[in-house]
């Protein structure tokens, strides 16, 4: 077997393992409870839906839970949501694992999502992405060793007018060049997350 074949085989193995085991289960065996101050918010969210249909609030509550508990959803937090909405826990797991913006495993303090969909791709997003990967020393889908930043390749974020673009936490950064992206990510690395709107 040539070295090339060997590498190919290894790659396909890794690929297989990844494709099969994407859904990660992280149960940190902690019990989670809502902080008291959120009581009003939760009641408000549930009140938006007809009584008996409170399970409809699952996405809103998962968002709230993710924000409250370190930016990701351990099994305990999902169980808490299920308990709050009186629905079977598995139904919550299904929703949480379906949407890319819910994390079912630990993530960095800040999440950098680089759009790699068509518009951004033709405008050079992969150059932006590799610049960012280079700056942080991790590949897309990974978290820096200090737990500060997670980089993700992401589907269309709906801002094609300013492609290529990325989203850091809740803010859009558009019209990127590799240099511009590197500057922004440098600041993120140091915890100074830019929140200004893109120009």
């Amino acid at each position: 077997m040539t070295a090339q074949e060997n590498t190919l085989l290894k790659q396909s193995d890794e690929n297989l393992a990844l494709r099969g085991a994407r859904v990660q289960i992280v149960d940190d065996e902690k019990t989670y409870t809502w902080p008291k101050k959120l009581d009003k918010d939760i009641k408000g969210i549930i009140a938006k839906y007809p009584s008996g249909r409170q399970a409809s609030a699952v996405i809103s509550l998962l968002k709230l839970a993710q924000k409250t508990f370190d930016g990701w959803l351990p099994v305990g937090a999902m169980n808490l949501v299920a308990d709050t909405l009186d629905m079977p826990p598995v139904r919550v797991y299904e929703v949480a694992s379906f949407y890319d913006m819910f994390f079912t495993q630990p993530v960095g303090k800040h999440v950098v999502r680089v759009c790699t969909n068509v518009s951004c791709m033709v405008r050079g997003c992969y150059k932006v992405l590799s610049e960012i990967e280079d700056e942080l020393g991790v590949k897309a889908g990974e978290t820096t060793s200090d737990g500060m930043v997670t980089v993700q390749e992401f589907e269309c974020l709906g801002s094609c007018c300013e492609a290529p673009m990325m989203m850091i936490d809740d803010h859009y950064h558009g019209n990127l060049t590799p240099d511009k992206a590197r500057d922004i990510v440098k600041r993120v690395k140091e915890g100074d997350v830019p929140t200004e709107a893109s120009k």
Binding site: R19, R22, V23, D27, P88, V90, R91, Y93, S97, F98
Partner: peptide, 24 residues
């Protein structure tokens, strides 16, 4: 979910990554 009344099976993930199981 419907007949046995033990909602313990679920489909997690999406698209190609969808998996049927009990998650936990």
């Amino acid at each position: 979910t419907e007949v046995a009344g033990v909602p313990e099976m679920c489909a997690t993930g999406r698209g190609e990554n969808m998996q049927v199981g009990t998650y936990v």
